[in-house]
């Protein structure tokens, strides 16, 4: 199933309601679709287009701009090996080479069991922990060849359960209790906020 399922549709509507304009929810909804299907399908993009009132082409335009959205299958575990300058200086290319030989696939390919794919990525903000990588956006710091192989074993044996399957990003979502919500600041709302009124701002 490629369109958003009922539960995700409910979440999608909640996400949309937080923004003054529907289209702002586009990226969060693409994440939601990717979480559901492991990738972003054309059907999901069409569904999202309906939800935020744009054309599917506009959804694709946005979706294809961002690296995290995969429109072709990746492994259950997508390994992003950082090759930013700090990691480069400390052996990122060796990690990449090792990944290729250890997994037996080239960058961008998926292992036969569908479990793994890897690619070199730009800086992931863990520069003092170089060389580092992310598996489904979970950090592994100061990685060497042995640790890499251990990581693969753990993932293959499903003993590293803190890492979700590809698509799931954060395990916690923001939830705004209905009675606590200030509500989106509508673009048409043109009056001075109430807490400034007292004090005559400016």
């Amino acid at each position: 199933m490629s369109r958003l399922n009922e539960e995700n549709l409910r979440i999608a509507r909640q996400i949309i309601s937080a923004y003054p304009k529907k289209k702002s929810a586009l990226i969060p909804l693409l994440h939601l679709a990717q979480e559901q299907n492991g990738l972003v399908t054309n059907e999901a993009m069409t569904h999202i287009a309906e939800l935020v009132d744009v054309t599917p082409a506009e959804v694709l335009g946005t979706c294809s701009f961002y690296e995290m959205f995969k429109r072709h299958p990746v492994g259950e575990y997508q390994i992003n090996i950082c090759h930013g300058i700090s990691c480069h200086l400390l052996g990122a290319e060796d990690v990449l080479e090792h990944a290729e030989s250890s997994l037996g696939v080239k960058e961008g390919e998926i292992t036969q069991d569908g479990k793994f794919s890897f690619e070199g990525v730009e800086c992931i903000a863990a520069c003092t922990e170089a060389p580092c990588l992310q598996v489904n956006y979970r950090y592994i710091n100061k990685v060497n060849a042995d640790e890499f192989d251990q990581l693969i074993d753990d993932l293959r044996n499903e003993t590293k359960t803190e890492i979700p399957k590809h698509g799931t990003l954060a395990n916690t979502r923001q939830k705004i209790p209905a009675n606590k919500a200030a509500g989106p600041a509508q673009v048409e709302e043109s009056s001075r906020p109430i807490w400034l009124k007292r004090n005559k701002e400016e």
């Binding site: 702002s24 990226i27 961002y66 690296e67 923001q174 705004i176 989106p184």
Partner: peptide, 10 residues
């Protein structure tokens, strides 16, 4: 409201 918004890699 403070709304958490996720980027997507760019």
């Amino acid at each position: 409201d403070v709304i958490l918004h996720w980027g997507a890699g760019a």
